[in-house]
Design a binder for these strands. Structure first.
Lengths: 338, 338
DNA sequence: TTGTAAGCGTTATCAT
DNA sequence: ATGATAACGCTTACAA
């Protein structure tokens, strides 16, 4: 006595062909909307499809066509950033939009452990994906190797150094940081510091470098504090530390809006007025910026466009076109916080 | 004259077999780490693999094994929520953790247009995925149909009604809303209102129902305002509206922490002290809660666990185990805002 | 322990 | 316009 199978075998193209009294070839042509099928054949096939409940097996199709029409987007962020950083959502949506338009499926793969890292690398190698957009890769992890391994068309968002020679979509963090710091200086501040973050990433390093460049002679390492992540908490603690180090501080560049928001809270709790007593500027022009009171002066980073551009970079490679790095414009948004 | 092909054909298992002087079968056994291969054969194969640069084609493998060891996570959120709602990141990470442990690859599919909706549905149907976790499906969209179509093992996060009879991982929004509203009432407030949101979703409806239940006789529809999204902006505007409607309002339940944060800002700009003049409570215990001054009293929603549980629900189905809805505990976090 | 060969469900080429 | 038939790259009985 045997148990009844719960789920019936999926109908194949053969079942359709049989039901329609036609060949597999014809069925395939109908399914793919090709020319050269008679109206009657088409109708017969369509009826048969409905009758047997056929849906095409994409895996089999991919095997023969040698493409998947899917692009991976790999996110490798520290746990907390997935929550705090609004850019990443915009990047995702931007990439999705570009790919959707080209009729590619975006599949997002997240890396949150070594195990993930290897599994994702295998996924890339396996031919399940035609290309990849890589958000914040670590130079060391297996992803870069996998991409190189099989010459997978890929592009970075951002521009970590030490990574393979791939096209990227990025902004000029040093120039943008220099610009907003100069503007802050332009309000007449005498003692300006920075809450730097994520120095293990190119963006973190570059923003610090830009700050330093703008400060020139006035740069004082004692007025710079460093935190590993672009978080509200980093800003809050960082500002308290700066205040302790030099109570006369009257300006601060925070490495991101989240950091700036934390700093503003710390400042206000310490009884300093913003922007009268201390001016504060951020980076990103994320939703944080408008939420602060006063609203944040910051650098607008075109997060969505970064995603879109990176996606287009891999699309270009897929079409055999040359694709080279693209650096996008940023603009200083001057509001009430400085 | 013909152009040189840029990328060489990928090595197949046949190439390895040839290079090693062994059969495909043996190579396959080595690759899959099976028993019954001699040490010398294994070494020869490994050498050959390295020599020809072989990586197995997963699509082909999936075709024959009839599984992909991948689970889709479908996110269908209005644009803005992907940025404002921190829960979704937690859900993602939670699901990923559970699947990673079971050696499944989580692939996140996002839906941001009708076009996406259909493409994703095809992706599900195509056999590229063994199961799906669905975050906030609309009852109407093609996803539910696709899942039903082929009987794909799936589970919801949350519990939209009108959706097919699938297991889900959710919290009891009405009970939780009732609980925190009661607590707010317990502080002696006389005029308490609500900023309701997302009434097109089960969570939005249920939170309103819970509020209403807690208010009983005291429920006054004039003290309830509604907004489509759980956003800071909704809270800000909603609070202003409530204040206009009844300046004597002294308590408010916001449908989410983001909403509560907006409300708090509006209150403070209007010169009301929190919690002295008006008490405010939120929902989620997201990172917003600790960011507010005073910190938010709110309902802790175990977002990560929701993701984990939903993932386990589909894993169970994959193993042929029964899987039934699971409702997770929430707890009231009482802090300074009321 | 290893080799052989039959699929997995498609698409694509070539006759007809 | 349609039908055979050969791939696509792999796993897996079954035989040896």
């Amino acid at each position: 006595m045997s148990l009844t199978r719960m789920r019936a075998r999926r109908a194949t193209i053969n079942d359709v062909a049989d039901a329609a009294g036609l060949s597999r070839g014809t069925v395939s042509r109908v399914v793919n909307g090709e020319k050269y099928v008679s109206a009657e054949a088409r109708m017969a096939v369509e009826a048969a499809i409905a009758q047997v409940g056929y849906v095409r097996n994409t895996a089999a199709r991919n095997l023969v066509t040698q493409e998947s029409r899917a692009i991976g987007l790999i996110i490798h962020e520290p746990h907390s950033l997935l929550f705090e950083d609004p850019n990443i959502g915009s990047i995702l949506l931007g990439a999705n939009e570009a790919l959707s338009k080209a009729d590619y499926q975006l599949v997002t793969l997240i890396i949150d452990s070594d195990r993930d890292s290897h599994r994702v690398a295998d996924h890339l190698r396996g031919g399940l994906i035609d290309g990849a957009v890589i958000v914040s890769a670590r130079a060391s992890d297996p992803i870069a190797a996998a991409v190189a391994d099989i010459g997978l068309p890929a592009a970075f968002v951002g521009h970590p150094d030490g990574t393979p020679d791939l096209p990227y979509a990025a902004i000029d963090n040093v120039e943008a940081a220099r610009a907003i710091t100069s503007r802050l200086l332009g309000t007449g501040r005498q003692r300006v510091g920075m809450i730097a973050s994520a120095l293990d990433r190119d963006s973190g390093q570059d923003r610090l470098a830009g700050f330093r460049a703008a400060m020139g002679e006035r740069y004082d390492p004692r007025l710079v504090v460093e935190y590993p992540l672009y978080t509200y908490a980093a800003g809050f603690e960082g500002m308290q530390k700066l205040l302790r180090r030099d109570p006369s501080i009257d300006g601060v560049f925070a490495a991101s809006d989240a950091v700036a928001a934390g700093a503003m809270t710390a400042l206000q709790e310490a009884g300093r007025r913003v922007p009268e007593d201390v001016g504060i500027v951020g980076f990103d022009d994320s939703s944080w910026a408008l939420r602060c009171r006063p609203q944040l002066s910051t650098v607008r980073q075109p997060a969505g466009l970064l995603g879109t551009t990176a996606a287009e970079l891999v699309l270009a490679q897929l079409m055999g076109l040359p694709s080279s790095p693209r650096v996008l414009e940023t603009v200083v948004m001057w509001r009430g916080s400085a």
